[in-house]
Amino acid sequence: MAQQHRYGGYNFTSGDSDSDRRWDGARRTSAGNHVARLQTDLAELGTYSGDIDGEFGPKTRRSLRMFSWNAKSHSQRVANQSVVQDTHRFNGSLSSSLNPLLCEEISRWLKSDFRTTGDLIRVQAADFANIELSSGFRVLSHKAVQQGEIVISLGFLESLKFADQTAGTLSVKLFLNQAFRVNGNAVSGAVVPPATKSQHLIGHAIDCNIVDGGSWNTSSDFRNGNETQAATQFIDAMTKHGLRWGGNFSRPDTPHFDKRVNPDSDDYDFKFAFNQLSISRNQPILLKK
């Protein structure tokens, strides 16, 4: 079993420590650097950045949980400086403790030379019949991203395709002002102050104008009741499809649509971490059709 080979055959839980010779919740007679080896492996995989101190404390437990979430949530990995699709599906639990399934998964990743990444993708605006980039759209500053490309989460791609199809049905155009946003970057032209845990920060949101003939259906138009019928129909279709419209927020943000992930959940926390890290680490971003 991979676990026998890598970490002395032990599971790890809170309080385990190499210095105390404590593994799997019990004191042992033989010495070893089993937790330190796990920390080294997790650092190589991209989820641990603390000291290699052999203590199975909060940072190590969180990094292990991050790894298990990444292995379960999507199939994108980085290998040899490229994004690859992992055909194996990890069926273990989301865990902060080391167990045999997680150990085997870590060993498999290291053998395959996989590294963690987010689920960001690039799509070309030209591939959408009814979506264009506004003059104020800022192309993401990243070595992989080209002019005319939109960066979103893979989990938002179906929603963007639905928006494009719905716009075509209603004979309107969507002019995108913003999609994925790098944390800390200033937002120009925002209708309301950006949320601390915005869906833009994980790639699950767009801001756009619904352009109907000569009307751009601006925030002022909505505020004054001058939006067009087609814009109202587009919003209705999007919300019925399970998306949120910012015009329904307590502080209305009429250009905004998102596929909400609970900002207080592991899904948001870890998607935020991996998608933002993929930018700061300058990892490749897959071009998706």
Rank of each mutant, 00 (worst) to 15 (best):
S73T: 09
R115K: 15
S278Q: 14
F12C: 13
T47S: 13
L277W: 10
V192C: 07
D113K: 10
K59Y: 00
G203D: 07
T218G: 13
L101I: 12
S68P: 04
Q146I: 05
K173Y: 01
F67T: 09
T218V: 03
T196I: 11
S278I: 07
D18S: 08
L154K: 11
L120A: 11
L102G: 02
H241W: 05
F180T: 09
Q3W: 08
F12I: 11
A144E: 08
P100F: 06
R138D: 13
W109F: 06
V139K: 08
S63Y: 01
A186V: 10
G15F: 00
W216S: 15
S278G: 15
R22M: 12
I150H: 01
H204M: 14
I52C: 02
D221G: 11
G242T: 02
L120R: 07
S93P: 13
A205W: 05
A36C: 10
V261I: 12
Y7D: 08
L98N: 10
L157F: 14
N177E: 07
R115L: 06
K59P: 00
D16V: 09
A237P: 05
K161S: 09
I279H: 06
Q147K: 04
F56E: 09
L98M: 07
Q178H: 07
F56L: 04
V191R: 02
I279D: 03
A126C: 01
F249D: 15
Y48E: 05
R22C: 11
K288D: 15
G225Y: 00
K72L: 09
N80Q: 08
R28T: 14
G203T: 09
D119S: 15
F180I: 05
N282Q: 09
W109N: 06
R6K: 13
R37M: 12
P100S: 14
G203I: 05
I202T: 10
N91R: 14
R37P: 04
P284M: 04
R223E: 14
N185V: 10
G189T: 06
V35N: 05
R77C: 07
N217Q: 03
E158K: 13
N11H: 13
F67A: 03
N248K: 13
F162K: 06
N80F: 09
F137H: 04
K240D: 12
L98I: 07
A2Q: 12
M238C: 10
Q124K: 01
G148H: 00
A273M: 06
E55F: 01
L154S: 15
R281T: 11
K143D: 13
R62S: 06
G25L: 06
Q147P: 05
E227L: 05
D127F: 00
